[in-house]
Design a protein around this nucleic acid. Structure first.
Lengths: 239, 239
DNA sequence: TAACTTACTTAGAGGTCTTAAGGAAACATA
DNA sequence: TATGTTTCCTTAAGACCTCTAAGTAAGTTA
């Protein structure tokens, strides 16, 4: 067990990279059905079963590649955030949201795969790379919301006015994020998340083609709503 | 070309029904990947290629079954609407929305298939059964909104304040629905549609499992928002 | 009754995922 | 240096898939 990465390990990593690239190319060029074990192996230059030395099943390969996409999306969002580390949060938050949509629009096949592909049982296990990456995705906007809540609390509904069932679920979620947001603030965060992510899902899944050809202004309007809900509309949220 | 349905045609219809049932059972019991031509044929009691006398390809079968699901969903919504034909629209509209969610929650596999399955090129053709059924789906809530707009116009934004790109798209859509809603009213309708349908998509695709176990109260809150946006909050919109 | 249409069959090509068995090369160690 | 072990890759094969081709049995129509 040497501390430095051995030659073997480096070669293996390189091959894994090639495999992921090949799978992604196939996805983008020919759709998700074209990402088969055999097709990927062919493109990498080895024959079918050899791929089983890298992934135990087709499912596992798909999960690994999906996790890659998640990571890339998260990186794009974090980059947008860190590029304005000193800007007020009213500017950083919309920037991160726009980075999210920009990545989704630039990589529709990849973004579509992230949530439209049926997540098989093994990839739903909390310790799967797929699930971990998904958590980090949600984390980015949660972090910003927590920061905002700590420095400039936004308006929240009265917990007593929410249905009991919702209150309980919010309490559970609040605990799951280590109480970084109280239930009523978590409710506002989740509402925003649902609107933002939901709109993006529908756009990429072509569920809005019947009415829109370009959803950028719709997204911007959604963003304005959220910024208002979070009490950020005084600071510049314009593009 | 006899006017009465011939014996042959009746038999064919019955077989088509059996095929659809078998496909649906497979989808519900074993997931979308299990809906193969061979598996469906086996379940119906004929051997593989025989199914090609009913559908030209696997894709076409999937499209036909999906259209069935759409029709069933639409029927559930229309039934909710017609069951209260005399009720004020402030009651009918939420009832239809709830019927939509009720069907989706009762038939998650089917609802998931409706939009999460990659819509292949042939099924995107405007004359495909798939596309026609999707239009009728949107139509139900559009009809109600048009009725509301005709009897009790809801508040709309000033067109001049919307970005030019959005204005153009709304004008096009308004024309596509024969001007039954002016662009600014269409904008409100589409915003409501996006929030409602988007929430449902995310629920069924398990994108909200990380926070919620039961989305019923979240849906109800969304519904209250929409009812308010449509100026219906005075009439009873409670469950 | 004869011709035609429809429904189905089996055979088969070429693809998929996956397991099994074996060879070759690189690494580790005595 | 010589030997053993690990790693990577191969081909073969089974079971499944979509879909085409050819042939048969049955019902419909003239």
């Amino acid at each position: 067990m040497s501390a430095h990465t051995s030659r073997r390990q480096r070669l293996r990593q390189a091959t894994l990279g090639e495999i992921h690239s090949a799978a992604r190319e196939l996805l983008v060029e020919q759709g998700s059905a074209a990402v088969t074990i055999n097709a990927v192996a062919r493109r990498v230059g080895m024959s079918g079963p050899a791929l089983y030395h890298y992934y135990a099943s087709h499912d596992e390969l798909v999960g690994a590649v999906t996790a890659d996409f998640f990571r890339e999306l998260v990186a794009a969002m974090e980059q947008a955030r860190d590029a304005r580390a000193d800007a007020p949060i009213g500017e950083r938050l919309p920037a991160v949201c726009r980075a999210m949509r920009a990545w989704a629009v630039a990589h529709p096949a990849e973004f579509g795969w992230i949530f439209a592909s049926p997540v098989t049982a093994p990839n739903r296990r909390p310790d799967s790379a797929r699930h971990q990456a998904a958590l980090r995705f949600e984390q980015v906007l949660l972090d910003l919301t927590v920061e905002l809540w700590g420095t400039r609390p936004f308006p929240v509904p009265d917990l007593a006015e929410l249905p009991a069932s919702l209150r309980e679920q919010l309490a559970t979620y609040s605990a799951a994020i280590d109480g970084r947001l109280p239930p009523e603030a978590a409710h506002v965060f989740l509402s925003c998340w649902i609107r933002l992510y939901g709109l993006l899902c529908m756009e990429v899944l072509h569920q809005l083609d019947f009415a829109y050809t370009d959803l950028e202004p719709v997204f911007e309007e959604c963003l304005r709503d959220l910024v208002t809900a979070l009490g950020l509309d005084d600071t510049a949220a314009r593009q």
